[in-house]
């Protein structure tokens, strides 16, 4: 795995997106030209990548002014990164990378989850108003955050897929949808369980709850639309348009409690002011949010691997995989 640690940290919220993204700025014309020459579904594993890299180096030595200056090393490093990022846009190279990342994300999810649950149950104090019932926020708030965030990531992949016509982008979008739907459902369900004793109602049609319900339906609609179309490329395109249209709902959910009078309370945690919440409660919630996040990444990677295998099942490299090969021998 050769993703640079620095960029991964910088794009923290998008760490799931970073693998296989083509979003690095392309320095200099020769590089762009080379990229253009490459087929959209780039499969540069093995000799292809090496040859492309050599051509790139030669091109830079010829055209790039930096090639002959002291900046040479730095350009080399930059180009190296571009090659690697492009490399992971191909299902063939992303499949093993995802396989290697999954255990790490499971481990992180377990670590954050254990710490978060411990704080949630044993350290965080009882709330003065709601008693123990408030502890639902340790599930409810992370699930709600993730339901919105996963949708943004899904729409981001959908846009990339529409623009670049990459196969992997569509697969990522469809791999994220079920987890997003699960999070939206959890958010609605735990909210209802809390609402009955605290508010006095399971459900009210206020702006926050309604827009979150619409988000849940958007996820379901996305999944249904994709599975209704047999041709996977067309399914990806249709789903991508739906996902992008639904993106307007996300700011509506987030700001609904500010824009309108709602029964749902305002945000306790926001970027613009200090949280109106006891310190340990906040820690429990943030750790649980991290755990949910890592879980979402791990489970989406597992799902995207399954989708890759299903859609590429006729490709030679899939048949050559030990896990496929072994099974076929056994059968």
């Amino acid at each position: 795995m050769r993703l640079k640690a620095g960029s991964g940290f910088l794009f923290g919220p998008f760490s799931l997106c970073s693998a296989g993204v083509l979003s690095v700025p392309l320095p200099g014309a020769p590089v762009t030209k080379l990229i253009e020459l490459a087929p959209l579904d780039w499969r540069p594993l093995g000799s292809g990548a090496g040859a492309a890299f050599e051509r790139l180096q030669r091109a830079l030595a010829r055209h790039g002014p930096q090639g002959r200056t002291g900046l040479g090393n730095r350009t080399h490093y930059m180009n190296n990164r571009i090659i690697n990022w492009f490399k992971f846009a191909s299902p063939q190279t992303f499949y093993p990378l995802a396989g290697r990342m999954i255990p790490w994300f499971w481990a992180l999810a377990a670590a954050f989850g254990l710490a978060g649950l411990y704080i949630s149950f044993f350290v965080a104090p009882t709330d003065a108003q709601q008693g123990e019932g408030y502890r639902i926020i340790f599930i409810h708030v992370p699930a709600s955050w993730m339901s919105m965030f996963i949708y943004l990531v899904m729409a981001f992949w959908a846009a990339l897929g529409l623009g670049f016509n990459t196969r992997l982008s569509g697969m990522m979008a469809s791999a994220l949808a079920p987890t997003g739907a699960l999070m939206a459902f959890l958010s609605l369900w735990t909210g209802a369980l809390w609402g009955k004793p605290m508010w006095g109602a399971w459900w009210v049609w206020d702006a926050r709850l309604t827009s979150e319900l619409i988000l849940f339906f958007l996820y379901l609609g996305f999944i249904a639309l994709q599975s209704a179309i047999d041709d996977s490329r067309r399914a990806d395109k249709a789903g991508a348009v739906l996902a992008l249209v639904g993106v307007v709902n996300i700011p509506i959910i987030y700001f609904s409690v500010k824009w309108w009078n709602t029964l749902h309370q305002g945000a306790s945690v926001s970027l613009t002011r200090s949280p109106s919440m006891a310190q340990t409660m906040l820690w429990g919630m943030l750790l649980m949010a991290l755990a949910f996040w890592m879980y979402s990444i791990a489970v989406s990677l597992i799902r995207v691997r399954a989708i890759i295998l299903e859609r590429e099942r006729h490709a030679g490299w899939v048949e050559a995989l030990p896990e496929i090969n072994g099974r076929m021998d056994a059968a």
Binding site: T126, D127, A201, M277, A278
Partner: peptide, 18 residues
Amino acid sequence: TEVLAKHDENYMPPEAQH
């Protein structure tokens, strides 16, 4: 015909409330 309690966004332990 129906009364709902609206919770505020403050979460604090009883000691702080006290």
